[in-house]
């Protein structure tokens, strides 16, 4: 093995092993320098490095921003295509409290809704973002609701950390996905509640229009999806039907 520090720079000092704290805070020099110019130099150095860093960061941010936004748009459109395959244009909304308002870009964490329109300008359905506790962590999904048949017509898992090979089947099991081709969430006469909440049943048992065929080996994850849909529907469907006329217009005024 070679000898340590054989061509070290002249200004390095022998290493000490004191246990005094780190000097990461800019103006907390526990060991005050002997000369008054020392602290000025320290502040100057940190200031300069900070300034160069900020310039570099602002440049990177501005340079990458268009690419990042383009990527996010591609991702969003791919997800929408999956749940609303016939839609070719859309309007964007946010769920604020129990009401939905056009998205003017001033919202951050409110769930997004997208009204998707066919080529002829008719509304295919509304895609809704929702999330809830799964088996391992929060599951984020997007699903599409068609007001015409009062049913769910598509569901896609956006983010989940469910067990690979078991729970993550909620995202890629074709049989489970086919539950959401036409899932009944019809309303009663008063138009203020769904006929019955969505129900999870054992795989292979007889299926009614509002029942979801679970995945064996991923019961908790399937149940989580059912619960997310139910709790989201409770709020969102009322909001959608309250604003249905406005929603059918292909542009936000």
């Amino acid at each position: 093995m070679s000898t340590p520090a054989s061509h070290t720079a002249p200004n390095t000092e022998p290493k000490t092993s004191s246990t005094t704290p780190t000097n990461a805070a800019p103006n907390a020099p526990a060991n005050a320098p002997a000369n008054p110019g020392g602290s000025a130099k320290m502040i100057l150095t940190l200031g300069t490095v900070g300034l160069i860093s900020s310039i570099l960061l602002v440049m990177t941010y501005n340079w990458t921003l268009p690419y990042i936004e383009a990527n996010q748009l591609v991702y969003l459109e791919a997800s929408l295509k999956e749940v609303l395959p016939e839609a070719t244009s859309r309007t964007e909304w946010r769920l604020v409290g129990e009401d939905m308002v056009p998205d003017d870009g001033s919202f951050t964490i409110e769930p997004r809704l997208f009204a998707g329109f066919r080529d002829d300008g008719s509304l295919q359905g509304v895609a809704i973002e929702a999330q809830g506790q799964g088996y391992a962590d929060v599951i984020k999904i997007i699903y599409a609701y068609a007001p015409d048949c009062a049913c769910i017509i598509g569901m896609k898992v956006l983010e989940s950390r469910e067990t690979p090979g078991l729970g993550d089947k909620i995202g890629n099991d074709e049989n489970f996905k086919s539950n959401f081709d036409e899932l009944d969430v019809r309303w009663n006469d008063e138009r203020n509640a769904t006929e019955g909440p969505l129900e999870l049943i054992k795989q292979g048992t007889n299926l009614s229009a509002w029942q979801i065929d679970g995945i064996s080996g991923a019961t908790i994850s399937s149940k989580a999806i059912t619960d997310i849909l139910n709790s989201s529907n409770e709020v969102v469907l009322k909001a959608i039907h309250a604003r249905l006329d406005q929603l059918r217009a292909p542009t936000n005024e």
Binding site: E13, N23, A24, P26, P29, N31, G38, K41, M42, T45
Partner: peptide, 8 residues
């Protein structure tokens, strides 16, 4: 300066 190198 030695004192602020880690912060830098």
């Amino acid at each position: 300066p030695k004192q602020v190198r880690i912060a830098t």
